Deep mutational scan, measured.
Amino acid sequence: DPDTRIPVINLEDGTRLVGEDAPKNKDLVEWLKLHPTYTVDM
């Protein structure tokens, strides 16, 4: 689902973004380019 929010984690300080704070699936690739310290939180 393009509107599903994907949890991400900041590799530098461990900050996790989940729920309403997390980027949407459809925006994920662009969002990660803009926030290079974050990666998808598995």
Rank of each mutant, 00 (worst) to 15 (best):
D21Q: 13
P36D: 01
D27S: 00
D21M: 10
K26F: 03
N10G: 05
W31I: 04
T15S: 14
V18N: 12
L28V: 09
R16C: 15
D21G: 08
D13N: 14
L11T: 15
V29C: 11
V8W: 01
D13F: 14
Y38V: 01
P2L: 09
T37R: 12
P23N: 00
K33G: 09
T4A: 08
A22P: 02
D27C: 09
E20I: 09
K33E: 12
W31Y: 07
M42R: 11
L32S: 08
N25P: 05
P2A: 13
R5T: 08
V29K: 15
T39H: 09
L32I: 04
L28Q: 00
A22F: 04
P23C: 03
K33T: 04
K33A: 15
V29H: 14
L32Q: 14
G19K: 08
E30K: 06
H35V: 01
V29S: 14
P36R: 05
D41Q: 04
K26C: 10
K26Q: 12
G14C: 08
K26L: 02
T15D: 13
D27I: 04
N25Y: 08
D3S: 10
E30Q: 09
K26H: 15
D27Y: 05
D3M: 12
V18W: 10
R16K: 14
L32N: 06
D3A: 07
R16F: 10
V18E: 14
E30C: 08
V40A: 15
D41N: 06
M42K: 03
P7N: 10
A22M: 01
D41S: 04
P36C: 01
K26T: 06
L28M: 07
L34N: 13
K26P: 02
L11H: 15
P36S: 04
D21L: 10
R5M: 08
V18C: 14
A22L: 03
D3K: 14
D21W: 04
N25W: 05
T37W: 08
I6S: 09
L34T: 14
T39C: 09
L34D: 12
T37L: 10
L32V: 02
D3T: 09
V29F: 09
D41Y: 02
P23H: 01
T39K: 14
W31G: 10
L34A: 15
K33R: 14
L17W: 03
A22H: 07
D3V: 06
D41T: 02
D13G: 07
N25V: 03
V40P: 09
V18T: 15
L11D: 14
E30P: 06
N25M: 11
R5W: 00
K24M: 15
V8A: 03
N10V: 00
T39R: 13
V8D: 03
P2E: 13
E20R: 09
E30F: 02
D21Y: 10
A22C: 09
K26S: 11
Y38E: 05
D27F: 05
V8K: 05
L11V: 15
P23A: 00
Y38A: 04
L32C: 06
T39L: 05
G19I: 02
K24F: 04
L28T: 06
G19C: 04
K24S: 09
Y38N: 04
M42A: 15
P2Q: 15
D3Q: 11
L32D: 06
K24L: 11
L11I: 15
L32E: 06
T37M: 11
H35S: 02
T37F: 01
M42L: 09
D1T: 00
P23I: 03
P36N: 06
I9K: 12
V8Y: 00
L34C: 13
K33W: 07
V29A: 15
R16V: 14
R16L: 12
K26D: 08
I9A: 11
L32F: 05
E20Y: 05
Y38I: 00
L17H: 11
N10Q: 01
D1Y: 07
Y38R: 04
D27A: 05
I9Q: 13
L28S: 05
Y38D: 07
K24N: 06
T39F: 02
P2T: 15
V8N: 02
K26G: 09
P2V: 01
W31V: 06
G19M: 04
L28N: 03
D27H: 08
P23E: 01
N10K: 06
K33F: 06
L34R: 13
N25I: 06
P7F: 00
D13V: 05
D3F: 08
L17F: 09
K24Y: 08
D21A: 07
W31R: 06
D41R: 00
M42G: 11
K26I: 08
P23R: 00
L17S: 04
T15M: 08
T39W: 00
Y38M: 09
L11G: 14
Y38P: 00
D21K: 10
P2M: 10
R16Q: 08
L34G: 12
K24T: 12
I6N: 05
G19E: 11
L34E: 14
G19S: 04
P23S: 01
G19T: 01
K33Y: 10
D13K: 08
I9G: 10
D3P: 02
N25E: 12
T15N: 15
I6G: 13
V8I: 04
D21H: 11
L17V: 09
Y38T: 06
L34V: 12
R5S: 07
T15C: 05
